[in-house]
């Protein structure tokens, strides 16, 4: 960036696409927080089954008469929260490991870490997740955390960190010869300080675009696992299991599958608009 463009970059507003993305994602998130609280129905209250969408049930009711609207947004809570926890923890662990690898002056440390990363990335993602879920036990529950969540979350974190590690290492390798990192060494700072204070703020930032995209992947995988029956276990509402429940009734009660699907698509679209605008800004 030239000296002239430095002040100009600060004046430049966010692109419209990012605001649209934030609005889409924000409205789903807000609805997920508010609707389960204010709705007349709870997630397992029973009414007449298979009602079409109406004023009383905006998304209709399912085959046992539960309100699909409230279940969709209660599911949104579970899905978004799980996605945030998974993404945040794998991003943190992954960038830390990747930055340590990239900053290390011992070749062996770097090589060892990166071989592990390569091994994880070499496997097909979803197959690895499914395998790990089975190993951990799909019905394991921790205290009040519903069955299926711990196994799904852990399996995703175990694998996802490797992607962050790879990105962070590449960035750390280019940063380690930067003047300010050289200065940190001449000031006698410890390697731990250099990694956490001087490299990680930048390596984490580099990972943000990937992280937003990663949220989409996590939401999709959580839904897929539930759809396949090995993710979040019923009766906890989840987008994938909602859609799965409705899939056999698609011809007589399309709303059970399609409307939660639309919410999932809106979420994904919002996230990808945000991720895309971050990437575009960076490539400029």
């Amino acid at each position: 960036m030239s000296a002239l463009e430095r002040p100009l970059a600060r004046l430049r507003p966010w692109p419209a696409s990012r605001w649209v993305g934030i609005a889409l994602l924000g409205s789903v998130a807000l609805a997920s927080i508010v609707i389960p609280v204010v709705s007349h129905y709870s997630t397992d209250a029973i009414d007449v089954p298979l009602q079409a969408p109406s004023g009383a049930h905006p998304f209709g009711t399912d085959n046992v008469g539960r309100d699909v609207f409230v279940r969709t947004f209660a599911a949104g809570r579970i899905d978004l929260l799980l996605a945030i926890v998974v993404v945040a923890s794998s991003a943190l662990v992954g960038t830390l490991i990747g930055t340590v690898a990239g900053a290390s002056r011992r070749r062996a440390v770097d090589a060892l870490i990166m071989r592990v990363v390569d091994a994880i990335i070499a496997f097909p993602f979803i197959v690895l997740v499914l395998g790990l879920v089975v190993v951990i036990g799909p019905t394991v529950r921790w205290g009040f955390i519903p069955a299926g969540l711990p196994s799904t979350g852990l399996a995703l974190v175990f694998i996802s960190w490797a992607f962050y590690a790879r990105i962070a290492r590449a960035e750390a390798l280019s940063l380690r010869e930067r003047d300010y990192v050289v200065a940190a060494r001449t000031l006698g700072y410890t390697q731990a300080r250099i990694v956490t204070r001087h490299l990680m703020p930048s390596t984490i930032r580099i990972c943000t675009a990937f992280a937003v995209g990663h949220v989409i992947v996590v939401v999709a995988i959580v839904a897929s696992l539930a759809f396949l029956g090995s993710g979040v276990q019923p009766p906890t509402p989840e987008w994938g299991s909602l859609m799965h429940d409705g899939s056999s009734l698609l011809q007589i009660a399309w709303w059970i599958t399609v409307l939660p699907g639309v919410v999932l698509v809106i979420t994904g679209l919002g996230l990808s608009l945000i991720a895309d605008s971050i990437l575009r800004e960076r490539s400029n």
Partner: peptide, 14 residues
């Protein structure tokens, strides 16, 4: 100690 050529890259941006 050293003073560097590029004043921006010689400081931690954060």
């Amino acid at each position: 100690q050293m003073i560097f050529q590029d004043p921006y890259s010689s400081l931690n941006p954060h």
